[in-house]
Simulated scan of single mutants.
Amino acid sequence: MERRRIVPIRIADNLPARRTLEAEAVIVMSETEAARQDIRPMRIALLNLMPDKITTETQIARLLGATPLQVELELVRISDHVSKNTSAGHISSFYRPWEEVRDEKYDGLIVTGAPVETIPFEEVAYWDELRRIFDWSQTNVHRTLTVCWGAMAALHHFHGIEKHELPTKAAGVFRHLNRAPASPWMRGLPDVFDVPVSRWSEVRREDLPEGHGLAVLAESPETGLCLIDDPAQNMLHMFNHLEYDTLTLAGEYARDEGGYLPRNYFPGDDPAALPVNSWRGHGHLLFGNWINEVYQTTAFDLADIGK
């Protein structure tokens, strides 16, 4: 009897990320193959606020595609915001505006960072819609993962926590302490692990309000908070970038014309030297834990999410 092959991630057949993932031996499912399988995939929405959307799509899809679960990745954008760094053709082909999906249900939502860290939340052009998306996540999404500025924005919206602008950019690869090894989100992560950091602002531990159920899962003595569990909102907040590729920080350094040197990143602090990726496994563990927890706890019927 022929054994049917279950493959984990479903993305659009002609999405640029597909070629990259297939070259890395990440098993990618075509839309046609997915339609033939008699199982319900995990439905994950990616609200991509990053300027280089194709790179971020690839990074997130790589980590979700490494799990043994079938994942259907839906790319979502702010409805009225025009991206300046990604072609209009790519956006119109692969992204759905949030207003178009607001009546739908998702097992998971990932909200990325955005290059607006030094702007007050209320002055960000799409802040009002993002607030509506956060509120919508409480009824139409089972669990949400927020990243970098997206994490700061969610904590500000739900808990009134302010961000603090840094005097210089926190950039590089920093050792982090695992503060909750028994947490399902931290399963398998070592007591100390490397994480890429790239941000101009921070949320401080002393600003976390008591009685809100917020739990610090990981932090660095040098760069502060990294991971916060927010069970009241069914959210996991990550201020740093375990999804980054080996050369992402190098690309940012070149883009910013060398205004800073990422710490603990270039061998010998030589920007011409090839960095060594010491966080790849940690990223796979965290995202694998997240998608597994979503799978274990979500409703069997999508329609029951939020009830």
Rank of each mutant, 00 (worst) to 15 (best):
R10C: 10
D13F: 03
P16S: 08
A17E: 09
E22T: 15
I27P: 12
S30Q: 15
E33T: 11
P51F: 08
D52R: 14
T55W: 04
E57F: 02
R62L: 03
L63C: 02
G65I: 05
Q70H: 10
D80V: 03
K84V: 13
H90K: 03
F94N: 04
Y95I: 00
E99S: 15
E104V: 07
K105P: 08
G108I: 11
A114P: 01
V116L: 04
V116S: 09
I119M: 14
E122W: 05
A125H: 06
R131T: 15
I133F: 10
N140Q: 14
N140G: 10
L145T: 04
T146P: 01
V147P: 01
V147Q: 08
G150I: 01
G150R: 01
A151F: 04
K163W: 00
E165A: 13
P167Q: 11
V173K: 09
N178F: 07
N178W: 03
R179D: 05
W185F: 08
P190L: 02
P190Y: 00
F193P: 06
V203T: 03
E219T: 10
D229N: 06
M235Y: 09
M235K: 06
H237Q: 07
H241G: 02
L242V: 01
E243W: 00
Y244L: 02
D245E: 13
G251S: 01
E252F: 05
R255G: 10
R255N: 09
E257G: 12
Y260D: 11
L261W: 13
Y265C: 02
D269A: 10
D270L: 12
A273R: 13
P275S: 10
R280W: 04
G281H: 03
H284F: 14
L285Y: 03
N289F: 02
E293D: 11
E293K: 01
Y295P: 00
T297P: 06
A303N: 14
